[in-house]
Design a protein around this nucleic acid. Structure first.
Lengths: 224, 224
DNA sequence: CGATGTCCGGATGTCAACATTCGGACATGA
DNA sequence: TCATGTCCGAATGTTGACATCCGGACATCG
């Protein structure tokens, strides 16, 4: 029998905790792109030691959210057009593999979860739509695909770009998300259908196109 | 003008240094798969503090060479068939993207470097062939393709599987590498040619097949 | 005899202080 | 005025010691 996960199993350590707090602060816009993340400041603010903050920042660097250089500290990544193109090129390659893998390995329960998420997106749009909430559902959808692929290395590679994707899209959504709102449900519903019973070749192509269209939309929103 | 890299720019810190030493020790077989890497031991052996060793082990974990769990230490990864399949599936996706990207962005000088590496492989085979040296040339070849692609996120993702690929192939080569030796030059020569002037679609296909054939060869060598 | 509780060695997680390095401000000289 | 050299503050890199946690061995009890 699966024991329900206890309230807050403190099995993560202060570094993970610190990383989570800083990441949320970055997503909330509290640390604009390019702003420095000083270890002593964060240590004092979070009430932990500098060592733990340092380790947490290393985790965030692994996610691509911050960048640190020798003896010059760590700063929040900035968002240039090249950054967006790089991240989305890698994501397209990973999503393609995840989709084709999940096509073979996904269980019925996992496919049902995808349908549930599409339903949640639809409900979110029907009501008082919240950009960040809709975005969270979008990313959760792709998280499940990676889970279903059952490839730990692939999931790790996704983790290395996931936060950057989240950050980019958050900035885009803050400027208006009518286009995003109009397309997100249909595109994900199609992906879910292709995962259930689609030609692997067209699934691979559509998975890549899904990312590329998001990339173009992002570049248009940031550049114009 | 580009200043020649000084003898040993100590711009890397003890953590990087410790990570390099431990990585080489793993490649040399000094730490068999599954063996624990105790921080105090390594700190004493390398003459640095435990903090630096800890940070270095975190770098190695980012490369996928070791795996650490909360309050239970870090151990060298073991090589199961599933691990090989996972790593090579991700590598195939990344190599495909790297090849198609480099097809557009590679400079003439970078293409010439690839030809030089193919020549070096050929020379290595003609003489007293060394498995590890041949393998180093193989990986260097792919490193250059990733460099030529000009996508930092893509190179980072490659770094996350590169060491595992190196480790797997080293173990394979130790058991005999006649098949590898017979094919490596021709396959890489074809890739270099396709990068110079090939149809993008066939380049993408051949890049994937190159990885898949290496994966099959590896599985056959480890399983049988 | 099997299950349970307790204890202990060893290893990791965390912390605060010391050493090193960087970038810029200021002063100096051609 | 521009270039160069020196100095200083601040932030990071590094260290050793303390606190916490895990796993197994032993003893105890039903």
């Amino acid at each position: 029998m699966t024991a329900a996960p206890l309230p807050k199993a403190r099995l993560r350590g202060l570094a993970q905790e610190a990383a989570d707090l800083v990441r949320e602060a970055i997503f909330a816009g509290h640390f604009p792109p390019g702003s420095p993340l000083r270890e002593v400041e964060l240590a004092a603010a979070l009430g932990v030691s500098r060592g733990s903050v340092r380790e947490g920042l290393a985790l965030l660097e692994r996610e691509g959210l911050v960048r640190s250089v020798w003896h010059r500290g760590t700063t929040v990544v900035d968002i240039t057009a090249q950054d967006v193109e790089e991240v989305y090129a890698v994501r397209a390659a990973l999503d393609r593999l995840a989709a084709t893998s999940a096509r073979r390995t996904a269980s019925e329960g996992q496919l049902a979860e995808l349908d549930d998420l599409v339903g949640a997106m639809s409900a979110e749009i029907a009501g008082e739509a919240s950009g960040p909430r809709l975005l969270a559902l979008d990313i959760a959808f792709h998280d499940r695909i990676y889970d279903a692929a059952g490839n730990r290395r692939l999931s790790d590679a996704w983790q290395a770009v996931r936060s950057q994707v989240h950050l980019f899209q958050l900035r885009r959504v803050a400027l208006g998300y009518q286009h995003y709102r109009a397309r997100v449900v249909d595109e994900h519903r199609e992906l879910a259908a292709l995962l259930r019973s689609g030609d692997p070749a067209t699934l691979a192509r559509r998975a890549e196109e899904h990312v590329h269209s998001a990339c173009r939309s992002l570049l248009a929103g940031l550049g114009g």
